[in-house]
Write a protein that binds this DNA or RNA. Structure first.
Lengths: 143, 143
DNA sequence: CGCCTATTGAAAAACTTTTACAATAAGGAA
DNA sequence: TTCCTTATTGTAAAAGTTTTTCAATAGGCG
C-alpha cells in the first residue's frame, strides 16, 4: 500500500508539505535531518515551513512510513521505511543507509541476553556503521 | 585502574566538578542526562555549573570512562563504563541500565550483515529495552 | 609555598524543537 | 463544480539544549 492511501485511511490529509517531504526522502539514499529536508526543499522552490517538516516527520514515524536513524555525529536522520525490518547500516564515507534483514539472527541474540540478564526484552536499537561496497572500491582505486 | 589515575596519566586534572560528576554517576544505576546530573548535584549543595557538566561528560566519554545510552524518549543518558563491553539493556519500568556481554554473539550477526550487504562493518549501536527481573516480580505481585 | 596554566563559571550566542493561534487549503457533500 | 467543515499550515514567539567566549580560579608540579 502506498503512503498516500495509508495516510487517508488513517484519517489524515495529503497536504503539500507532506508530499514534498516524502518525495524528498524517497529521492535520496542518505538519511536527512529535519533541517536538511527543509533547506533542500526550499532550495527547490518549495514554500513550506520548518515547523511543517517537524510535524510531518513525527507523523510519518508514528505511522511507520519512515524510520529514524542515529548518525555517527549525533544528529537524527530520517529514511523511508520498507515494510518489515527497519535495521540500517550506514556508510561512513558516502553516508548511504542500507536496510538489512536481521530479525532471525537477532532472535538468537535476544534469547542469550534474556538468559544472561533475566530481563524480558521487548524492543531494541540496532545499527551498524561501516564502508559500503562502492566506497571500498573507490579507496582501492585511489591507493 | 581507577578513573583519577587514568585522567592524570592522560594529562588532565582532577577538578571538583569532575569528581562530583563521576561520584554521582557511580552512585546511580540509571542513566542520567547532563541536566539531571547538574540538578541533582546542585540539590546536594554542589556549586558547579551546567557547562562544566557538559564538558566533563564529553571528556569522560572520549576517555571511555562513561558510556552514552539512548533513552526511549529520545534523550541521551550517561552511565559509568566498565572495561570491555559497553552494551546496555534498559528497564522500561525502573529505568535501570544493565550491561551485558554480547561480543561473541554479535560477531556472528556482523558476519551475516557483512555478507548480506557487502559492507565492511567497523562499528555498531546496540541497545535492548525491556523489563528487569525486579520489575517483573513487582507486576506479578500486584496482579 | 608559589608559579603556570588547565579548568571553571557567568553570560551570551547559537542551535534545535515546541507551542499558540489566525489564515489557508484538503476533500467530502451537495 | 462549488460550498462547507475542519485538519493543516505558516508566522512568531517561547522553550529547551548545547556551544562559545573570556576573565577569574584552583590543581598540581617544582
Amino acid at each position: 500500500m502506498d503512503w498516500q492511501k495509508l495516510l487517508t485511511q488513517a484519517g489524515f490529509r495529503i497536504s503539500k508539505p507532506r508530499k514534498q517531504v516524502m518525495q524528498l526522502l524517497e529521492s535520496t539514499q542518505t538519511p536527512q535531518t529535519a533541517l536538511a529536508i527543509y533547506q533542500q526543499l526550499r532550495a527547490q522552490g518549495a514554500r513550506l515551513s520548518l515547523v511543517s517538516v517537524y510535524r510531518t516527520l513525527e507523523l510519518f514515524v508514528s505511522l511507520g512510513l519512515i524510520s529514524m536513524v542515529y548518525e555517527p555525529e549525533g544528529s537524527l536522520g530520517y529514511v523511508p521505511a520498507s515494510a518489515g525490518h527497519h535495521h540500517y547500516i550506514l556508510c561512513q564515507v558516502c553516508h548511504r543507509a542500507v536496510e538489512f534483514a536481521g530479525t532471525e539472527d537477532l532472535a538468537g541474540l535476544i534469547y542469550q541476553v534474556e538468559n544472561q540478564t533475566q530481563f524480558l526484552v521487548s524492543d531494541h536499537l540496532l545499527q551498524f556503521f561501516g564502508v559500503c561496497p562502492k566506497c571500498q572500491n573507490k579507496s582501492k582505486e585511489s591507493a
